[in-house]
Design a protein around this nucleic acid. Structure first.
Lengths: 194, 194
DNA sequence: CTCCTAAGTCATCGATCGGTGACTTAGACC
DNA sequence: GGTCTAAGTCACCGATCGATGACTTAGGAG
């Protein structure tokens, strides 16, 4: 037998497969039977553990989405770090897209929208806002820069724009520096090697 | 009776209601019965006119999405015009979102992705690329600016970020100029009043 | 070995979906 | 008014979905 009867292990495997399915196919495109089938378990078990499909979605995406870079280094390196994390990290576990980009597919459900906003605000904008310190409209500048990073991720993975899809991190680096300086009003050195 | 028997008129009303539904609820969240119900017609009529739900979607989104600003004025005013059109135009007909932002909800279907890419490239990036003329990596700069505009639209409507949601066109104007100049390497005057 | 609890399964329900084909009816034309 | 065509309707199919409750079985404790 492949697996012993271990509630927590089965729960964890369900969450992992659910995460992948929801990211790749969206909320509506994923059925409870799909997820249970991936794990090799009866669909009814999902409802025993998570109450509903919605509960499965909430818990799957909640445990997934906090890979936020820690503001450990100098603040000037934050844009490059966030760009790398949001766009160039290996998100193969989530079907090649950053979870936040993937979650846009499942928007429309109001709780998904709320979760998205919360994760973007607390996970990214709060960190980025250090860069805007000292400017009069700090929050707006921060969100505008966040919008840029998110837009880059979307054009690359969800839309598949020709040039940006093939661009490397090196290609984006000089423009990242230029835009960051334009928005934050101070030079933002970009490290040469990630 | 509210309406006479007019094939073309009924067809047009179906397309209009389908556009709204698909934009607001996404492809999966919209049923043929919903659209037919809005028009006050039998669902079977949809299949008689459009063959399938997919055909309805294609024709509804195709007829909708070409409100591309004409490059009639000076090229320097293009960023402001596109920002206005993409973000601040009245898209109440599409549930308050630009159709392209709304179409992201229905991504996952490969033809939707293709249509998105085509419309963004031909409708927006081609126009914007005039601004990048003379730069070495013209296409990349153009797509990066397009990514920014798209990201702003998404953060405003789909995510609902606090500051950007309430920002006016006037608030964004100076930052638009700064980023455009940073990306395109030349001053981009922003008109004072839209 | 026995028993008992919890992990997991089975059968099934009710609703909804996209889609099809036979049918009905409105309305222009003679 | 009668008739013929096309616009629109009706009844229904097969599949799939989320969800429920009764059931079975694995496996440690005694």
């Amino acid at each position: 037998m492949a697996h012993k009867r271990d509630r927590e292990a089965t729960r964890a495997r369900l969450l992992e497969c659910a995460r992948l399915r929801f990211a790749r196919d969206g909320y509506d495109g994923t059925s409870v039977r799909d997820v249970a089938g991936d794990v090799g378990v009866d669909p009814a078990l999902v409802f025993r553990y998570f109450g509903s499909k919605s509960g499965l979605f909430t818990q799957a995406m909640a445990g997934s989405s906090a890979p936020v870079v820690l503001p450990d280094g100098p603040v000037e390196e934050l844009p490059a770090k966030l760009l790398h994390q949001l766009v160039f990290e290996d998100w193969s576990e989530y079907a090649g897209e950053h979870p936040l980009v993937a979650m846009l597919r499942s928007a429309g459900h109001e709780d998904t929208k709320d979760r998205l906003r919360q994760q973007i605000c607390e996970g990214y904008l709060d960190v980025l806002s250090q860069l805007a310190e000292g400017n009069e409209d700090k929050n707006l500048r921060t969100e505008l820069f966040g919008a840029w990073l998110l837009g880059i991720g979307i054009l690359r993975t969800a839309v598949g724009t020709p040039t940006l899809s093939k661009a490397t991190e090196e290609d984006l680096r000089p423009h990242l520096a230029a835009v960051a300086e334009a928005l934050f009003g101070r030079p933002v050195p970009v490290p040469k090697n990630g």
